[in-house]
Design a protein around this nucleic acid. Structure first.
Length: 450
DNA sequence: TCTGGGGTCCTAGGACCC
DNA sequence: TCTGGGGTCCTAGGACCC
């Protein structure tokens, strides 16, 4: 491949404090769509949320057309069609698979990889700027060649500044996709931070932006110069840490066990319905499906849960009464049994809903998670854990595919392409789904040699 | 007709106890 | 019945992230 082996870099440099390296894919979902469909290269592509609701990712050409993330698809569809925009339903199975490959490649170049989200990871560089720059450039090339995804890299003494540097790399083509904050800061002094609106700083959302702006804090530079004690008092320790980070003092700990994303504190499965649902009967069908999805996550990470929460709500967008309900059930014994959890999810909402409300979304949350291996039931109380059903359902899913066997609607398979199309009238729409080239034999890409 | 899904952490406030 | 301070624990809600 012509790429220098990462091990060749393993020479200690002179830098004493390691720098954070943030590698982040450019327009990740849209880039994934083009990997197996070269005809999309250079074209405006948007990826839509579930139910083909709103835009969640845009290719560079789509951004140039002025399409904004979060825009409801139905509002811009006509215009987008006229502009030649290609729309795709989100294909999480494909994205997760490509993410995994991308992370694997990057981990060969730098140590201490912390996978922060599906499309970005932090790593550490222990070397001087020149060598760091070389490694990051090679990492970029390697990911592009072997996975087909373009990434941008930002390097800085703290995670928050690495985020800023990463933005810089994306917005300044002259950086060739890699920005070392030390170099930007040396050349432009405070000008670089002054050019970043405060709302673009990692950890500053819409609400905080408004409040900060009303205090005259408009840019990342203003925030860096703010008094951390005052910030803590008026806001929170989180924002205080952001101020310290902007000053080059690392204050954000790595997320525990972020590497595999295994030890979660809660597991949530929720969906919008394709059409409003009224009455507990139908709601309960959906809750059963979500409970089983959540349960299989739970089992995959080897945990038990001790509380099951269920919720539902009507649309906040339609006129009339907004209605929501939620309830939880404490399990007598921590469990990973799909039947127990499904029953609990239904019971949690039974009697708590408005029988006339038109619900548009529902979900199930598993809480109070603990390690299944470490759990010892009291002698004589083991009966609460039925070890029978969980493994059987898992084996059936492995052999025959998901959603062939399950409890209630969890075992019904509709006509749609996706596995979780249960055939319920509330099941979500994904009409523009691309093939899952890397995870399904029957959807593999076909290449024609001429 | 049509507005995502899955997480984390912090804080305020209430219940309860001494 | 009212009066107090100090502590812990829990939950709901709000804010943020991608």
């Amino acid at each position: 491949m012509g790429i220098e082996s990462p091990t060749a870099y393993r020479i200690p440099g002179t830098r004493l404090t390691p720098q954070y390296v943030l590698a982040d894919a450019n327009s990740f979902f849209a880039s994934c769509e083009s990997v197996f469909d070269p005809s999309l290269a250079g074209r405006p592509v948007v990826v839509l949320s579930n139910n083909d609701g709103c835009v969640v990712a845009r290719s560079p050409a789509a951004k140039r057309l002025g399409i904004v993330n979060g825009t409801p698809w139905f509002k811009i569809r006509e215009r987008a069609d006229a502009d030649g925009v290609v729309a795709r339903s989100s294909n999480y199975e494909l994205y997760a698979s490509l993410s995994h490959r991308m992370m694997h490649v990057m981990a060969r170049f730098l140590p201490e990889q912390e996978v922060y989200s599906i499309d970005e990871c932090f790593m550490l560089s222990l070397w001087d700027d020149q060598r760091t720059q070389a490694i990051c450039t090679d990492l970029r090339t390697a990911v592009l060649r072997s996975v087909g995804i373009p990434v941008s890299v930002g390097v800085a003494p703290t995670k928050t500044l690495a985020k800023v540097a990463n933005h810089w790399a994306k917005n300044h083509p002259s950086s060739d996709g890699v920005t070392l904050w030390s170099r930007v800061a040396t050349e432009d002094g405070d000008r670089a931070l002054a050019s970043v609106p405060v709302g673009e700083v990692w950890g500053v959302g819409r609400r905080l932006t408004r409040k900060l702006e009303s205090m005259g804090i408009l840019t990342a530079l203003d925030l860096r110069q703010a008094d951390p004690v005052m910030i803590r008092r008026r806001f929170s320790v989180l924002l205080e840490r952001t101020v310290l980070e902007l000053n080059g003092r690392p204050s954000i700990e790595p997320e525990e066990d972020a590497n595999d994303g295994v030890r979660r504190q809660q597991i949530l499965c929720s969906r919008m319905f394709s059409q409003p649902v009224t009455g507990f009967e139908t709601l309960s069908q959906a809750l059963g499906v979500y409970a089983q999805k959540a349960c299989s996550h739970l089992r995959r990470q080897g945990s038990l849960c001790s509380r099951v929460r269920a919720f539902c709500s009507s649309s906040p967008y339609t006129r009339g009464q907004y209605s929501s309900a939620s309830g939880s059930i404490d399990l007598e014994d921590p469990s990973d049994d799909p039947l127990t959890i499904t029953k609990a999810a239904r019971k949690a909402l039974a009697g708590g809903i408005d029988p006339h409300a038109e619900y548009i979304r529902a979900g199930v949350v598993l809480e109070g998670l603990q390690n299944a291996g470490g759990y010892q039931p009291l002698a004589g109380f083991e009966a609460g854990r039925d070890q029978g059903l969980g493994p059987v359902l898992e084996e059936a899913a492995r052999r025959f595919g998901p959603f062939r066997v399950g409890i209630g609607y969890g075992g019904v398979r509709g006509q749609g392409q996706q596995d979780d199309d249960t055939g319920g009238e509330w099941a979500m729409n994904r009409r523009m789904l691309s093939p899952r080239c890397t995870t399904r034999w029957d959807e593999m890409a076909t290449v024609h040699a001429i």
